[in-house]
Design a binder for these strands. Structure first.
Lengths: 466, 466
DNA sequence: TAATTTGTTCGTAGACATTTC
DNA sequence: GGAAATGTCTACGAACAAATT
């Protein structure tokens, strides 16, 4: 018999005691899910403290812990020690960012890659398809890629400054595919991976699917904070770290050389598995002083992911990876289990393009395009012109009083799609808020300029800008 | 202070008490892993009962439960209620079956698909690559496949007898890729899926990677036992079921029409998610009376997987799926998260081949080849000739006294690679044992015949045969 | 068939760390 | 800067279910 009567006690959520069936913790999550889906529990609502809810329901408090933990794994809530447990923000189950093809919407959300140059690859496709050895591309052999393709892949990685683990070069079906493979093979459900507080949304979703817990780390203008990372490592038994050291998505931050050294030391000290996502790798061919690849600093603990989607052709789904020796077998195994193999035809086209000069041409054109769109952006948003720096998207700070959804919806009603930083947020709310404005989807410079001007006007008009 | 002295007590494994650090359960698994890897604990060794080990270590028995459970998730052990916990059989971490390319080995292990006919696709590749609309294949659009490709895919599935869920047709990067996507999106770590006691090895490995528990169900000559399935469902909160209804791998069993009905009823009653793997789908074009697709019997609960690897070209990595409405969104999301998209170029080639007659030609040739190799097998192994039935591999019963490894190694020393049924075994050991003899990798009929004759001789010589 | 052995599930409490006030 | 609030991790015992004898 409960001793306390909570009938009037102000709990933000009062599960129905009578509907509580064994197992309690599952039943509790069911009720919570219902309350969230029906709108009774709104995003960011603070749930009752575990001990209070336990008293109210007359069950052990660790049972509530368990329910809250499960709800967190399902993406329904997030908890902060000392503060409380809250209903998750956006996560309406499908957080993934993909292109919106509605025709009346101007797309500044999806981050594409200047697809107008894609036609340049045609000659290479024809070259490969008329080759005599087409047949060797069409069987089950060589799950990690043909030796000759891997050699070319490896040379490309050398060029962009990745010097280690050459012998462990493999071909996968794009960068996102590489991340799936890595998360499946090197991590277990419940493992923890450190990430930037604002992280690539598709990685967040993939981690959620995999049941991996992401630990958000704060950052500053030089990138992820080494101090915060160290603190979390001491505390939390973190197994891996996911980084986009160059042109971080969505922050646009490139980690400084000094910070790379600090982070690398921590990665070694705490034996983290480093996942280095170098999704804009081709830009290293043009930077005057490319920064050190993190993977070169911790070659025994890293997997380096080199997608060709942004650098060359997004539709062919080819990426390269280099893994530390210790991961080689597991990764090979997972490649076979997820893909069987990557289409060797696609790999042949990509590697041929890297050899016959077509890739260079496409990359150069992308570079020109990216330079141009950044100039447009800088002009409209009154920034200092960026020099020797090539962002595919930019971050526009906005007032954090407004919810991400509110801003996105307002803009959408005005025919513009952008993503608010909330979409990339790991864990609890943050004081800083910004819009990620993609410069890559509108291939026509004039249309981009018009759209950016409209964007700015709407932001000012609604007092979203700060 | 422990009261009992176990110094002489016969425990099959005596973890070092002094090395036991907190958290105990993890530390225990570490020690176990070490003992297994160093060979101190051999496969199938019975571990001490949880309560005994707990007494020995002077810790709570539920802590041992937890350690055993974790070790099971890692694939190190398996437990049977009432019997005990055992060190896992083969699982030397990489169970996956892929082709062995050593040149002195005759391959009867890997299950390929008569690759000699692959050259026929060349004209189609050239046709597609010289098309004018190549560019539309090369961008980020349409993660689940271009509408026109999906239409052709859908028509093909109609032809092979899959009539439901037409509107939910999607393109993925092959059958194995489909399985990854399904396991990632519709299941969580710790969920249970019912499978045949002998199941496709790559599915076992994928489930292990994903942290899904497979529940083995017994079968008979008509396929999976409905009685056993029902019993396990009553007991175990099973969430899904994985079936290869036609030409089950490795059993070669095709589920009878009647059994399909029974299983479908159970799938409905227990609300299971059906994963139907129709990996030899093209054979339905030639069977006189194709059996009902299970997915048609439970269209609201199924995902139907139609790989084109075996049916057409293994190297292009294209497969089709049809999902129940309720799974559509989750699957779409996972497709994007695992693949971003399937190479539309590959999809274009495959769908074009389905239209221009090349696919028919390849399939007909595969049919001829498969008929021929089955006749060779029947003759050498003195079977009744199989009529109107087209196995890519055959099951040869062997004496279960010998370990799978022993038989495989003996054959390998004689230059022949085959797989023992142990490789496909889910959970505990079984009385029945057989070799899966693949008929697909040796394209030359004479070489196959010679190899089968040698195989038979070696089996007899070593008294492996029964 | 009943008793025993053994693994599994679940609820619970203690110890601890962080955040807030 | 200390106390209170709060979430997290881990160990454990009771109840249960299956297999064996």
């Amino acid at each position: 018999m409960p001793i306390n009567i909570f009938t009037d006690y102000p709990l933000s959520w009062r599960p129905d005691r009578s509907r509580l069936k064994r197992p309690y913790y599952q039943s509790l999550v069911e009720q919570m899910k219902g309350a969230i889906e029906s709108g009774h529990l709104l995003p960011d609502t603070k749930l009752p403290p575990q001990r209070e809810l336990a008293d109210f329901l007359d069950i052990g408090f660790a049972t509530v812990t368990r329910a809250y933990k499960l709800s967190q794994q399902r993406g329904l809530t997030y908890g902060v020690v000392g503060r409380g447990t809250y209903v998750a923000k956006n996560l309406k189950f499908m957080q993934t960012i993909s292109r919106n093809n509605a025709h009346n919407i101007r797309e500044l959300g999806f981050n594409a890659s200047f697809e107008a140059n894609n036609y340049l690859i045609r000659s290479t496709v024809e070259e490969v398809s008329s080759q005599t050895n087409l047949v060797e591309l069409l069987n089950y052999d060589e799950p990690i890629g043909l030796a000759k393709h891997r050699l070319i892949a490896s040379r490309y990685m050398d060029q962009i400054g990745m010097t280690m683990n050459k012998e462990n070069t493999m071909i996968v079906s794009g960068g996102q595919n590489a991340l799936s493979i890595i998360l499946l093979s090197l991590f277990n459900s419940g493992d923890k991976i450190a990430v930037d507080k604002f992280t690539y949304a598709n990685f967040i979703e993939l981690a959620r699917l995999r049941g991996i817990e992401l630990i958000p780390i704060n950052d500053d203008s030089e990138g992820m904070s080494a101090v915060d990372l160290e603190q979390q490592c001491r505390l939390k038994n973190i197994k891996g770290i996911y980084l986009m050291p160059d042109y971080g998505n969505p922050t646009t931050i490139t980690i400084s050389e000094q910070r790379r050294q600090l982070l690398a030391q921590l990665i070694q000290r705490y034996k983290l598995i480093l996942i280095e996502d170098d999704y804009l790798n081709f830009l290293n061919l043009y930077r005057q002083t490319p920064l050190t690849k993190m993977s070169n600093l911790v070659p025994e603990q890293s997997i380096y992911v080199c997608s060709m989607s942004k650098s060359l052709i997004s539709g062919l789904r080819v990426g390269f990876i280099r893994t530390a020796n210790q991961f080689r077998h597991s990764i090979e195994n997972a490649i076979f289990n997820v893909n069987v193999k990557t289409s060797a035809l696609d790999a042949a086209i990509v590697t041929r393009a890297l050899q016959n000069g077509v890739a260079s041409k496409i990359m150069q054109q992308k570079l020109n395009a990216v330079t141009k769109v950044n100039a447009i952006f800088d002009q409209i948003f009154d920034n200092q012109p960026t020099v020797n720096d090539y962002h595919f998207f930019r971050a526009v700070p906005v007032n954090s009083q407004f919810s991400g959804n509110q801003i996105e919806q307002t803009l959408l009603q005005n025919g513009i799609r952008v993503f608010h930083s909330d979409k990339f947020l790991v864990g609890s709310a943050d004081r800083t808020a910004f819009l990620r404005v993609s410069l890559t989807s509108l291939d026509n410079g004039d249309e981009l300029a018009d759209t950016l001007i409209d964007l700015k006007a709407i932001l000012i008009q609604n007092q979203f800008l700060i």
